[in-house]
């Protein structure tokens, strides 16, 4: 087990380094080659201290990163378990009910919600909050000074909800398609002919054999989630890591771009390590398939 985890960790470090290199090349290409800036990405003077536009108080890069990550954590805390829980449970159920187009029906509410532009949804919440609750709608308008900080969780939930809906819809489809592919294999027909019940065939054989592929199906969700919170956080004036990236791009701050993009890449990388390790650790034969 340790060997597999360490192996995946090493692979991830190499991939992370490659992604970092790609990001640096991208910044140089966008800002200097296309944008015509003379601040090259390899020059130390292109970075400097944290610009005032990224933080109201004087702070180091590490301090800024800590502040922004702490704010973004509740959003990820809602999104990641929500997507995995809904995606896997409804996806498995959808594949089980494939005769009745279960996966499509179960994913439909999330897919429909995913058609709503997320930034528009958070603006709607801000408008509703202003007119119906008589309080400023955006996340940067009010600070709780005493009592339980429920407002933080409310703001995190508003940002998380559109990202969660899109992620859950794609996860349900991915999980059910893996299982639906597994149940078309010829050995299951043999089991059916041998007199096994449908439930037995699905849960004790097809599901167990598909477990590695099911775990592997989760890796792309993290990338999509990281991308969607960038726009949502900025739209809701939520001062998280996604907002930091947009503000840094606007200000042309290479330090801010690198810091925020590396954190997002690290988050995706952690998710990929988890999915790949789990998919390699689980052996379908040992699961009794």
């Amino acid at each position: 087990m340790a060997r597999i985890v360490l192996q995946r960790l090493l692979v991830s470090v190499i991939r992370f380094a490659a992604a970092g290199l790609a990001l640096i090349v991208l910044i140089e290409l966008a800002f200097c080659v296309i944008g015509g800036s003379d601040r090259h990405v390899w020059r130390a003077e292109s970075y400097g201290p944290v610009p005032p536009g990224l933080s109201a108080r004087p702070v180091s890069w590490a301090g800024l990163l800590e502040d922004r990550v702490r704010v973004s954590l509740p959003v990820l805390f809602i999104c990641v378990p929500g997507i995995l829980l809904i995606g896997y449970s409804w996806g498995i159920l959808g594949a089980r009910l494939r005769r009745f187009h279960g996966a499509r029906l179960l994913a439909a509410p999330f897919s429909l919600f995913a058609c709503v532009p997320g930034f528009w949804f958070v603006v709607l919440v801000a408008i509703y909050s202003y007119f119906h609750w008589k309080r400023p709608g955006f996340a940067d308008d009010l600070i709780v000074e005493q009592g339980p900080d429920l407002l933080t969780w409310w703001h995190a939930a508003v940002v998380a909800l559109p990202a969660l809906a899109a992620g859950a819809a794609s996860q349900i489809r991915a999980v059910s398609s893996v299982l639906e592919r597994e149940v078309t294999r010829p050995y299951l027909r043999g089991l059916f002919m041998a007199g096994y019940s449908e439930e037995d065939i699905f849960y004790r054989h097809a599901f167990r054999r598909a477990l590695p592929a099911l775990f592997a199906a989760g890796d792309r969700t993290f990338s999509a989630l990281a991308g969607s919170i960038v726009c949502l956080e900025y739209a809701f004036r939520y001062p998280g890591i996604g907002s930091l990236l947009v503000e840094a791009v606007r200000l042309g701050s290479y330090g801010g771009i690198l810091v925020s993009a590396f954190v997002l890449a690290a988050f995706v990388s952690a998710g990929v390590i988890f999915c790949e390790s789990a998919s390699r650790l689980i052996k379908p034969e040992a699961a009794g398939g």
Partner: peptide
């Protein structure tokens, strides 16, 4: 390797820069 960098981040940096 490329999937570690979310596509929206790539687009953001490219268009913004």
């Amino acid at each position: 390797s490329g999937f570690l960098l979310p596509s929206f981040v790539v687009l953001l940096v490219l268009t913004g820069g």
